[in-house]
Design a protein around this nucleic acid. Structure first.
Length: 883
RNA sequence: GGGAGCAUAGCUCAGUUGGUUUAGAGCAUCUGCCUUACAAGCAGAGGGUCGGCGGUUCGACUCCGUCUGCUCCCACCA
């Protein structure tokens, strides 16, 4: 078989992915094995794969594949999220391009377009995930708006409504004027924004609506809202303003009279100490208004424009109005001064529009009990957050969370199952038929067309918070008539959840709430929170910055395995990832290394009659011991979710120990054959390595596992078992390190003296170097001869130390005595200083008295070793100087 | 404004209850090699007063305080 010098991933990857699918290797059904289940954080149905997904899905796939090889019944449920705002935006945009306005469509027509769009573009992202090698059970693919899951959402709404936890109320909500919908507190991003602080003069009224010459000054950032002012408020303790008590003032420009009131809320040392109270357009003002029974005057419409109530600037956008009114105020003589001002302003996470606090009727879910339960889940450790630092933020959020505004003024989503009777009363039922039935109990003879269904849909998170339950059982426990479900019983709670910390509250916390509410227990055992993928400059990868590479192009260029390695190499949990293409190159190089090691092995001929040589014996002995030690380390890393450490351990083990040391040791001379025993062991080691690597690099390992020996149809490395940890001889492994060090030192001497690796060298040894390991030094350092002696006097060459063993490379005529003396003196100097520091410790009575015995013994050993090294350096120096 | 976290080689990071670490890895760098598995490679080498200062301790990268710098989260836009 002729193998290419370079590994070619594209030819291999599609083949094996199709093979895995054909054989249903990713599919899981409940059985006698222990389950390992994960649900995908459902990406937006209209989304495309970005680097953040790559990182998450790679980590997820590593965990799933590892669990599968550990004998678990692994089930990874994929799916997408209908993402109401994001998707509706895209559909609206698409329609606009066709010249169609949403306003001209009925709800049904719009939804038809939306579904069409979803069928066409939705799920591209799931196709992309396949390219990465994700071992999802595609037969279980779910969509949050598929009929069954929508039903689950509706049932959940009914459930909470009947439990009294859902209510409708007029509240100040975060209004996104771009999208014309309310958004939740969590969807508001506060950004420091440059604005102005306008100081405005309000004249005191003479009691008949006419201005006197007295006035007060307020400071505001929103002069366009003065027409909605209901009062001016001062702090009762503020003596500067006591003269205003009982007075009325006139709103500039429109001359409407409003009272001066007093409330502790106002801070005396901020602004002028006078606050204009605008209950309809500010959350605090609203609260003050409630306390003081102030009228509410709403002057801004749903698009953020001034309405008729404003009297002036009607129809103007709020920001345009702001500019215009400032000019008007200036001309009217009401503008005292303008200050530059930076203040935090809320923006809609989805549209980036400035949030308008707006009073509107919305549906809310009471959070106190749900949040308390979900907090306990994490506090008790039933769900672990990895890394642990997120527990603090989680706690803080759970303790301060407010009721969840769950209604959205959109069409794409689950429509709220609330029905209004003509008299305004509400019935909430899962179906229109049921609703009518209930309504008739209130108003006999009511007709279907008399019932009006609420226009709003539910927040997307109100569907995705059910995900770990609904993907297994859309009928949802908790609903009347719910029957036990085998999948749910088997797979719930899921094992690990891999997701970004940015949706810890949006999604993770709420899934925990739903889990506790409906299942009575946590939805997952561990939540692994990844970092944010950033570019080399530390900027978050984003479409607008254009700094995010296309993952599919990367896969095409380097191969999926390489990309996976690149993502994993630098991804300790919770730390941000600084993405750099060179990491993916490193992954590609690793693929190539694996590939070429296979070419080497495959090229060997075997002679069954050959005896196993000493060097091969020791190589096999060492590697089999080392393998167990490494597997143990890797398992430990995995158990702590230190995926990049696990990968690095495997990487070094393969590259350094297997390729650079083991294969070089057993490699037969050119044209020579290898003994069968060593060959079999070598293949066995290779096979074990492939299994160890498979979770991180699924494609190349499957390819080579099949190339290694003929496999039965339908077999796969995916279901091979992770290599076992057998008892290993640590002392022997450590001793082998001495041999490596010796070989390295000899090579170093060659480098310094410019001696070709092909020229054999002679070595003299003083000390207890294990004879068993001599062949290792001989072969890898090209040493023809090793001579043990009691002293190294009168030799010509270069000496070095391996531990406390002295070694000497015999070299005639190549030695520069001065150079050697200088080197030895430097080494001696270092050693003497080291000895000093050790002795300082040992001579300290406090140290010997307080430190544990083992530590003291360690220091004594250091002292002894150091003394022996010093002695040997000194004797070598003496030699050199005498000659 | 409140809270959390981070700061270790040029870069990205380890360093697990303070003691065989006058600190390790990978990448990058430098030197020598086209040695018939791999130049996407091989061999060798250099590189850090562990952010500053102070304290606790026989002993501090590790614990405490403080300062500086960065990041993130939360927060009602007078």
């Amino acid at each position: 078989m002729e193998l290419d010098v370079k590994y070619n991933p594209s030819a291999v990857e599609d083949k094996w992915y199709a093979y895995w699918l054909d054989n249903k290797f990713f599919h899981s059904e409940p059985d006698g094995r222990k389950p390992y289940s994960v649900v995908i954080p459902p990406p937006n149905v209209t989304g495309i794969l970005h680097m953040g997904h790559m990182l998450n899905q790679t980590l997820n796939d590593v965990l799933v594949r590892k669990a599968r090889m550990d004998g678990y019944n692994a089930c990874w449920v994929p799916g997408t999220d209908h993402a109401s705002i994001a998707t509706e935006n895209k559909v609206v945009k698409m329609l606009e391009e066709k010249g169609i306005k949403k306003a001209d469509l009925t709800r049904e027509q719009f939804l038809e377009y939306a579904w069409e769009w979803k069928e066409k573009y939705g799920g591209i992202i799931l196709q992309q995930l396949r390219k990465l090698g994700a071992s999802c059970d595609w037969d279980r693919t779910r969509f949050t708006m598929e009929p069954a899951l929508s039903e689950a959402v509706i049932n959940t709404f009914v459930y909470f409504y009947k439990k009294g936890l859902i209510y409708k109320g007029v509240r100040m909500v975060n209004w996104d004027p771009d999208r014309c919908t309310a958004v939740s507190d969590e969807e508001v991003v506060h950004k420091d924004t440059k604005s102005h602080f306008y100081h405005l003069r309000y004249y005191i009224s003479d009691g008949n609506g006419k201005p006197t010459d007295k006035f007060l000054v307020i400071a505001t950032t929103r002069p366009e809202t003065i027409m909605a002012d209901a009062a001016i408020c001062v702090n009762p303790a503020d003596e500067r303003h006591h003269w205003l008590r009982g007075k009325k003032v006139l709103i500039p420009l429109i001359n409407r009279e409003i009272p001066v009131i007093e409330d502790d809320y106002v801070e005396m040392d901020f602004g002028t100490g006078c606050l204009k109270v605008t209950p309809a357009h500010d959350v605090h003002d609203y609260e003050i208004g409630m306390r003081h029974n102030l009228p509410i005057l709403d002057i801004i419409d749903e698009h953020g424009r001034l309405n008729e109530q404003a009297q002036i600037l009607v129809g103007e956008d709020r920001f345009v109005a702001r500019k215009k009114i400032v000019k008007m105020l200036e001309e009217a003589g009401n503008l005292v001064k303008v200050e530059e001002y930076i203040s935090p302003v809320g923006y809609s996470e989805k549209s980036d529009a400035v949030i308008e606090p707006r009073l509107s009727a919305q549906w809310f879910l009471k959070m106190d009990k749900l949040a308390a339960d979900a907090l306990e889940t994490v506090e008790s450790g039933r769900t672990k957050l990895i890394p642990d630092k997120y527990r603090n933020t989680y706690r803080h959020w759970m303790e301060t969370v407010r009721d969840w505004c769950i209604s959205r003024q959109l069409w794409w989503g689950q429509q709220i199952p609330a029905y209004y009777l003509p008299d305004g009363r509400i019935v909430v039922e899962a179906t229109p038929e049921k609703a009518l039935e209930e309504a008739r109990k209130l108003v006999p003879g009511l007709k279907a067309e008399d019932l009006k269904r609420d226009e709003d849909v539910l927040d997307t998170w109100f569907s995705s918070w059910l995900w770990p339950i609904s993907v297994f059982d859309p009928e949802m426990p908790g609903n009347p008539g719910h029957k036990p479900n085998a999948d749910l019983a088997y797979y719930y709670p899921t094992s690990d959840l891999v997701t970004g910390p940015d949706i810890l509250f949006f999604w993770v916390a709420r899934m925990i709430m739903a889990g506790e509410e409906f299942m009575g227990r946590e939805p997952f055992a561990n939540v692994y929170l990844t970092g944010i993928v950033r570019d080399k400059l530390g900027r978050k990868m984003s479409k607008s910055l254009g700094n995010s590479p296309d993952p599919l192009e990367l896969i095409a260029k380097y191969g999926a395995d390489a990309v996976r390695i690149g993502m994993l190499l630098c991804s300790s949990a919770g730390n941000d990832i600084f993405y750099d293409e060179s990491q993916i190159e490193q992954g590609r190089n690793f693929c190539n290394k694996i590939w070429n090691s296979f070419r080497l092995i495959k090229g060997w001929t075997v002679d069954a009659s050959l005896e196993q040589s000493e060097v091969n014996k020791v190589a096999v002995k060492w590697f089999s011991n080392k393998l167990s030690q490494v597997v143990e380390t890797v398992e430990d890393h995995y158990s702590k979710y230190r995926i990049s450490d696990a990968l690095m351990t495997i990487y070094k083990f393969f590259w350094d120990d297997y390729c650079a040391w083991y294969l070089e040791l057993v490699k037969p001379a050119y044209g020579a054959a290898l003994d069968k025993e060593t060959y079999d062991n070598t293949l066995e080691f290779f096979s074990a390595l492939l299994k160890l690597i498979h979770p991180v690099m699924p494609f190349i390992t499957e390819e080579l596992w099949h190339a290694l020996e003929p496999r039965k149809e339908g077999s796969t490395i995916m279901y091979e078992h992770t290599p076992e940890v057998k008892a290993y001889d640590k002392a022997f492994i450590d001793a082998f390190e001495l041999a490596k060090e010796a070989a390295g030192s000899v090579r170093s001497v060659r480098q310094q003296k410019g001696i070709s690796p092909k020229e054999p060298l002679k070595l003299v040894v003083k000390g207890a170097f294990p004879v068993e390991l001599l062949p290792v030094v001989k072969k890898l350092a090209n040493v023809s001869d090793v001579d043990f002696r009691d002293n190294l006097n009168n030799l010509s060459g270069v000496g070095f130390m391996v531990g406390t063993i002295e070694m000497f490379v015999l070299l005639e005529g190549l030695v520069n005595a001065e150079e050697e003396i200088a080197k030895l003196e430097a080494a001696l100097e270092y050693q003497k200083r080291f000895l000093d520091s050790v002795r300082k410790k040992l001579s300290n009575a406090n140290f010997t008295a307080h430190a544990p015995e083992a530590v003291v013994a360690g220091e004594r050993k250091k002292e002894a070793d150091s003394l022996s090294k010093i002695a040997s350096y000194e004797s070598q120096l003496k030699q050199l100087k005498n000659n």
